[in-house]
C-alpha cells in the first residue's frame, strides 16, 4: 500500500500546502468581507489626519514630530496593526460552543496549526490591499520615509512576526477560556480596547503621560504595534531594538507557557457538548 514512505519534513510541507490551499480558496470566497474587516482597523489612519492637523496648527511640529514624522509613524502603526490581526478567540469560542471543535480534535494534528495557517493565509489575501494603502499614504504626504533602511526592514519583519505570534497566542488563550466560560469573546473585546489604547495606535507612546510609560513597558501592548512601527521608521537605536526583540521573546515564552497549561487543563475539562 505505502508505495513510497514520506519523510517527516515532506509530510509537514504537504500539510502546510494543503491547509494553505484550502484556506486560500476559502478566503477568496470571503474577500469582500476581509476588505471590510480591514476598514475596522483604520484608527491609526484617522489619527494620522488628526495629528498632522495638530502639527500644522502648531507651526510645523508637535513634541518633535513633524507632519511627515506623524505620517511615517501612523502608516507604520497601521501596517503593524494589520499584520497582527487575530480573530482566533472567536473561532475557538464558536467551535467549542457549537461542538465543531470535536471534529478538529479527532484529527492527528493539533487544531492550533489549522487556526495558525488560517491566519497566515489570510495575511496573503490582505497583503496586496495593505501595500496599496501604505504606498498611497506615502505618496500623498510628501517627505514620508516609512522604511529607514533595508536593515531596518529586515529587523521589522522579524519583530512583526514575533508581534503576531504574541497577539495570536494571547487570542488563542482567551479562546481556550471557553473550556470553562460560556463565552470568551467579551474578554477578547476587552483585550482589543486595551490594545488600541495602549499599543500606540492612537498616538506614539512618546505623548503618553510620563507616569504611564514605565507601566506600559511591562505590558505586551507596546511590543506589538508601537515598537515594531518605531523600528521600521528608524526611530530606535540598535541597542534599543535588541531590547525590544528580547522583551518580545520573553513575552512569547510567558504566553506560550500559559497556552500549554490552558490547553492541557482545558482538554480535561472539555465537555464536547452538542457533538
Amino acid at each position: 500500500m505505502n508505495s513510497q514512505p514520506m519523510s517527516p519534513f515532506e509530510n509537514t510541507w504537504r500539510k502546510f500546502k494543503a491547509l494553505f490551499g484550502a484556506w486560500l480558496a476559502h478566503m477568496t470566497v470571503y474577500r469582500a468581507e476581509i476588505l471590510i474587516w480591514m476598514l475596522s482597523g483604520t484608527i491609526p489612519l484617522i489619527m494620522l489626519a488628526v495629528w498632522i492637523g495638530q502639527a500644522q496648527a502648531a507651526g510645523g511640529t508637535v513634541g518633535g514630530f513633524s507632519a511627515s514624522d506623524f505620517a511615517a509613524y501612523f502608516l507604520a502603526a497601521w501596517l503593524s496593526g494589520q499584520m497582527i490581526v487575530a480573530w482566533v478567540a472567536w473561532e475557538i469560542d464558536f467551535a467549542i460552543r457549537q461542538g465543531t471543535f470535536s471534529s478538529k480534535l479527532l484529527r492527528p494534528i493539533n487544531p492550533f496549526w489549522e487556526y495558525f495557517m488560517q491566519h497566515i493565509t489570510e495575511r496573503f489575501v490582505r497583503g496586496p490591499f495593505i501595500l496599496a494603502v501604505v504606498a498611497l499614504g506615502t505618496l500623498l504626504i510628501p517627505g514620508t520615509r516609512l522604511v529607514a533602511s533595508a536593515g531596518h526592514l529586515l529587523v521589522y519583519i522579524l519583530a512583526i512576526i514575533l508581534a503576531f505570534a504574541i497577539r495570536f497566542l494571547i487570542a488563542y488563550c482567551i479562546g481556550l477560556l471557553c473550556f470553562w466560560l460560556e463565552n470568551a469573546t467579551a474578554l477578547d473585546e476587552l483585550y482589543f480596547v486595551l490594545s488600541i489604547m495602549l499599543s500606540g495606535s492612537f498616538a506614539p507612546l512618546d505623548f503618553y503621560p510620563a507616569w504611564l510609560r514605565p507601566i506600559l513597558e511591562f505590558l505586551p501592548f507596546p511590543y506589538i504595534v508601537y515598537y515594531p512601527a518605531q523600528i521600521l521608521i528608524g526611530r530606535l537605536p540598535w541597542s534599543e531594538i535588541a531590547r525590544v526583540l528580547l522583551v518580545q521573546c520573553v513575552w512569547l515564552a510567558i504566553i506560550f507557557v500559559l497556552f500549554s497549561w490552558l490547553w492541557k487543563a482545558g482538554r480535561r475539562h472539555y465537555g464536547a457538548v452538542g457533538a
Partner: peptide, 28 residues
C-alpha cells in the same frame, strides 16, 4: 449531525486537506 467538511468549499477540498493531515500517499 456534525460535519468536518469545510462549508464553503467543495467536498473535494476537504478530502485533500484530510489526505495531507492523515499523511495518505497519493496512490492510496
Amino acid at each position: 449531525q456534525k460535519q468536518q467538511l469545510i462549508w464553503d468549499l467543495p467536498a473535494l477540498d476537504s478530502f485533500l486537506v484530510n489526505q495531507a493531515i492523515y499523511e495518505i500517499p497519493d496512490a492510496e
